[in-house]
């Protein structure tokens, strides 16, 4: 008869070998030159932001501090950081990152036929996206940690009465937004990478013309609520009291937006799992 320890050990083995694809995916991202090019791509705008901040924004913040107090200047800077995070990093740069990393998640394995090595192992097919996607999410989000932290420090360092670390509590919130953004776009692009041979064009259309596509079907608040950028804006707005984002019109709470993005992600990951479970790999 199997002892309790023996059966526990067997269970641990059973779980740990099934995490092998997760570990392998993380390692493949880390070893891929493309990943580090993406990191440079995300760091590059900081040079421009650094120059602009020192040339124009610091004057703004000094004026605000002079007339409304240092706290108001701080809030203004935090609003600007959120604006840049949403409108530059999430709505433009994150789309490139998620397209590159998301479509390659299964697409590259399928095109290179390295997926055969996994398909011939004792692992259920549906488990492949379930293991690969978390690895993608961790890696893609980690790419944003340094740029968003530096963005915050660059902006805050010119605010009168503040230093680079003032309001640093905003950074985890920015990273949380990046996580949701990467999850939502990545899950869609992972699915596209699996079903299409050349997914790039379709991914670019979905990424950059999502608003236009949904406006063909919906209108008003429904149209807004069917786009990923809108939900990111709603979440971003809930974290700051100043900036362009603080003035936008919203139709639901931040919690609803968080749940919407999580549901969208779960839907596409599940769809990918279902698809791969039935798919022939010629």
């Amino acid at each position: 008869m199997e002892t309790g320890t023996g059966s526990r050990l067997k269970m641990v083995n059973e779980v740990s070998y099934r995490l092998e694809i997760f570990k392998m995916t993380l390692r493949s991202y880390a070893k891929d030159r493309k990943s580090w090019i993406l990191e440079i791509f995300l760091l590059f705008p900081l040079f421009v932001i650094f120059i602009i901040t020192r040339r124009y924004a610091d004057e703004d913040y000094r004026e605000t501090a002079q007339f409304l107090g240092e706290e108001a200047a701080k809030q203004q800077a935090l609003g600007d950081i959120m604006d840049l995070t949403i409108y530059l990093y999430m709505v433009i740069l994150a789309i490139f990152v998620t397209i590159v990393l998301g479509t390659s998640l299964l697409g590259t394995e399928k095109n290179d036929k390295t997926i055969y090595y996994i398909l011939t192992r004792p692992i259920h097919r549906y488990e492949i996206p379930l293991q690969k996607f978390p690895a993608y999410l961790i890696f893609s989000t980690s790419l944003f940690i340094v740029p968003l932290t530096l963005l915050h420090m660059t902006m805050m360092s010119v605010v009168p009465g503040s230093n680079a670390f003032t309001g640093i509590g905003l950074v985890p919130k920015l990273i949380f937004i990046a996580l949701l953004c990467n999850a939502a776009y990545g899950s869609i692009f992972m699915f596209i990478g699996l079903i299409l041979k050349r997914p790039l064009l379709v991914a670019l259309i979905i990424g950059f013309a999502g608003n236009l596509l949904t406006s063909l079907i919906f209108s008003g608040s429904t149209q807004a609520q069917t786009t990923i950028p809108y939900h990111l804006e709603v979440i971003g707005k809930s974290f700051v009291s100043s900036g362009q984002i603080a003035t936008m019109e919203t139709f639901n709470t931040a919690l609803t937006s968080v749940l919407t993005l999580i549901s969208l992600t779960a839907f596409f990951v599940a769809l990918t799992s279902m698809k791969i479970q039935k798919q022939d790999f010629e």
Binding site: N13, S16, Y17, E20, I21, M24, R27, S28, K31, D32, D112, K113, T114, Y116, Y117, I118, R121, P122, I123
Partner: peptide
Amino acid sequence: VFEMGNLYDWMTGEDFVRTMGRLSGLR
């Protein structure tokens, strides 16, 4: 063993065989 198809070129030979062994449930 399939004729067509690439390898995980970023891995070493041992790394590749070890990973495939782990995926097969060896510990």
